[in-house]
Design a binder for these strands. Structure first.
Lengths: 354, 354
DNA sequence: ATTAGCACTCGATTAAAATGAGTGCCAACA
DNA sequence: TGTTGGCACTCATTTTAATCGAGTGCTAAT
C-alpha cells in the first residue's frame, strides 16, 4: 500500500490534533478538521489503511486513533519542517533569553542551572543539562599551593575556564622554591593536553624529572585523573521534573514514580545525552523506545549539544510525553543553542556598550 | 480533663499501631492490642475523651482514630524516649556506615551526596543535606593567579578545607612581583576572618594599602562577598524524593506534585534546615504545619546538624509522612551525626592502621 | 467504673445499567 | 471505482443502586 498525499494529510491532521488535545482522534473530527471535504466514512477507510501500515493505532476497539512511534517518527522527520520558517518569528523569546543570559553569566554552574529552570518553565517539560565535560578539554593552568602543614591544594584551570580543585594530604612541608619548581614542571609538562591525552609516556617522563618528589607528582597525576574522570565529572542540572504531572499518561499509576526515579537516578539519562553528543551536534529526537531507557518508553526526549567556547561542550535534553510539542521545543532549543554559543562574546560586547 | 496514665497508654497504643499499619485504628484493636484488659466499649469512651482533648481525630464518622499533630507531638516529646537505649543495639548499621564513609571521603560533595543516597534508601524517606555554609567559616588561604592575558583566578580555602574559586576579568597583565605582593596583602589582611567579619573597616584599610591596584582589590573583595554569599552558597543534596510514592497520603491526587515541587524548589526547605541549625544542634522534629512549608503539611521533617570539623557545619533533613518511623529515623540520624563528626579523625586513624 | 448490646453512620466495594464516542462493513450512488 | 449514508456493534466511562462492614455512640445492666 502506498502512502499517498491524502493519507499523509490525514495522518498529519491526526497527529496535529492529538498533540493539541491529547485525546484519541476519531474519523468525524478529521472529516471536519481538514479541508479535504471527505465524509467520516471515507476517513475511516483511510484510517484503517494507516493503521495497517503502522502509523497509527487504537487504544481500544471503540476509540479514535493515536499516532504510533512510527507515526511520530514520520512526523518529526518529514512533516515538521515547514514550520521552521516561523523561527525568526519569536524574537521576543530570544530577547528574554538574551537578557537573562547576560545578567547571570558569572558562573557556568548557575548559568546552566538557571537555563534549565527557564527551559522547564517555558516548555512545561522536564529539562536536563549536562555541564561541559572536563576530560575533553585542554589543561590551561595547574598550580600547587601549600595551605596547611600537611595539606596541598591543587587547582586546575581548563580551557573554557572551568576550574577544578582538590586537596592532597602530604607528609612534609615544602619550601617556596621547591613548590615553584614543581609548578613549573607540572605546567610545562601538562599544559595544552587534554586529560585524556595525559598518558603513560608523559607520566613516566615526568616522574624522571621529578627527582625526589616523584611520590608527590605521582599522587598529583592520580588525582588529576580521578578528580576529572568521566564519572565524577558528569554534573547534571535538572529542572521541572514535576512538569510530568501535567501529562496523565506519564503520571498515572506507577508511571510517575518510575519516571521520576529515572530522572533522579541521572546516570541512565546521562548516557542518552552523551550519545546525542556523539551522534551529531544538531538536534536529535528520541521517541519512546528510541530513548533506550527503561521507564521512559512513554516519553520523548529532544536533545542538542551546546558549545560555550571552543570545545567546551555539553548537552541539553528536554523530556516530555510522546505527544510533546516537537515544533516548539526544537525551535526553542535552536534559540538556546545559538544564544549559549554567543554568551561569552555577547557579554563582552554588552559591557563595552555601557 | 486529665491525661492520666491509662489514657497515655491508650494513646501510645493508637499511635504505635497507626505508625505500623497506616490505617485508622479502632477501639476493638486497642482492646486486644494492649495489656490493659479493657473492653472495646471502655476504650471507646477513653478515645472519645482523647479526641476531645485533641490528641486524636477521626477521618470520618465511622472510621477509627488517627493521631493529630498534637498527638504526634506528645509522642515525640514524651513517649519515644524509652527506646533510645536500643541505640547501641544496631551496631551493624553503624559498621556499614563506617565502612562506607571511610571509602568515600575524598571529596565532601560526593561524601554528602552518597550519604543522602544511603539515608534515603535506609529509611525509605526523602533526604536532604545542606553542604557546610562557607560564610560562617574562617578564611585560611587566598591566592590570585594569572591564568590568561586578561583572566585572574582567585582561589580561597576555608577552614575545613572547603575550596571556592572564581575567575575575574582584568585589563592588564600583572608581573610576578606585583602578584606576589597582592597575595601577601590579601592573606595578611583576610586570613583568620570569617567572611561575615570582612567588614568595611578592613576593606578601607586594604584599599589604602593596595596603592594603584585599588581597583582590583576592590573587585576581589566584591567577588569574595558574592561568591560566598549565603544564597549561592546553599548547596543542597537530595535523594529519594520518589520514596514519597510509598505513602499514599503523600502521593494521592495532586499531593505528589505539590510535594515534589517543594522538594525541587529547594529554597523553602533550606530555610527549614537553617532554622534547625540555629535552634539547636541536637535532633529536631517538625510535625505537619510546624514545618511552616506550604505543601508539606502532611509531612514531618526530622533534622539534625552535623559537624565535619570545627565550625564546618551543615544540616541533614529526613522528610516523610507524619506517620513516619520517628524512632528509627532519630536513631539513624544520631548515628550518622556521630559518624560524620569523626570522619576526618577516623580516616587518618584507619590509614595509620594499614 | 465497666461492659454487653444495639442502632446507626458512612466510606468502600460490587453490580448493573445507561451513555456515547467511535468503529467496521455493506449497500447505494455518482 | 471511489465516496457516502446508514446501521449494528464494541467498549471505556459514567451513573445509579445495593450491599458490606468496620467502627462509633449511647443506654441499660452489672
Amino acid at each position: 500500500m502506498e502512502l499517498n498525499e491524502r493519507k499523509m494529510k490525514i495522518l498529519q491532521a491526526i497527529i496535529k490534533n492529538y498533540l493539541e488535545t491529547g485525546e484519541p482522534v476519531g474519523s468525524r473530527t478529521i472529516s471536519k478538521y481538514t479541508d479535504l471535504n471527505l465524509s467520516s466514512a471515507t476517513i475511516r477507510n483511510e484510517m484503517a489503511d494507516l493503521e495497517e501500515m503502522g502509523y497509527i493505532l487504537q487504544p481500544h476497539t471503540s476509540a479514535g486513533r493515536i499516532p504510533s512511534d512510527k507515526g511520530y517518527r514520520l512526523y518529526v522527520d518529514n512533516m515538521m519542517l515547514e514550520k521552521e520558517e516561523l523561527l525568526k518569528n519569536k524574537e521576543k523569546e530570544v530577547d528574554e533569553m538574551k537578557e537573562f543570559l547576560v545578567e547571570k553569566v558569572d558562573r557556568v554552574e548557575t548559568l546552566l542551572q538557571n537555563m534549565a529552570k527557564m527551559l522547564a518553565s517555558n516548555t512545561n517539560y522536564a529539562t536536563m543539562i549536562t555541564a561541559p565535560q572536563a576530560h575533553k578539554n585542554k589543561l590551561k593552568f595547574i598550580q600547587l599551593s601549600q595551605v596547611d602543614k600537611n595539606k596541598m591544594l591543587c587547582v586546575m584551570v581548563l580551557e573554557g575556564n572551568m576550574v577544578k580543585n582538590n586537596i592532597i594530604d602530604v607528609e612534609e612541608e615544602f619550601d617556596n622554591e621547591t613548590l615553584l619548581k614543581l609548578n613549573v614542571l607540572l605546567n610545562t609538562s601538562l599544559n595544552g593536553l587534554t586529560l585524556e591525552e595525559i598518558n603513560l609516556s608523559i607520566i613516566t617522563k615526568m616522574n624522571n624529572q621529578a627527582g625526589k618528589h616523584m611520590e608527590l607528582v605521582k599522587r598529583i597525576l592520580d588525582m588529576v585523573a580521578t578528580v576529572i574522570s568521566e564519572e565524577d565529572d558528569m554534573e547534571v542540572y535538572t529542572s521541572g521534573a514535576t512538569n510530568i504531572f501535567k501529562y496523565p499518561e506519564l503520571s498515572d499509576g506507577s508511571n510517575a514514580s518510575r519516571l521520576l526515579g529515572a530522572l533522579e537516578e541521572k546516570s541512565e539519562l546521562t548516557h542518552l545525552l552523551n550519545r546525542s553528543n556523539d551522534e551529531s551536534n544538531d538536534i536529535q529526537v528520541y521517541i519512546g523506545e528510541e530513548t533506550t531507557v527503561q521507564n521512559m518508553n512513554d516519553c520523548s526526549v529532544i536533545t542538542t549539544t551546546y558549545e560555550l567556547e571552543d570545545g567546551v561542550r555539553g548537552t541539553i535534553g528536554i523530556i516530555g510525553p510522546k505527544r510533546m510539542d516537537y515544533e516548539k521545543v526544537v525551535k526553542t532549543l535552536k534559540n538556546v543553542k545559538e544564544q549559549l554559543g554567543s554568551v561569552y562574546s555577547k557579554k563582552s560586547i554588552e559591557q563595552d556598550d555601557k
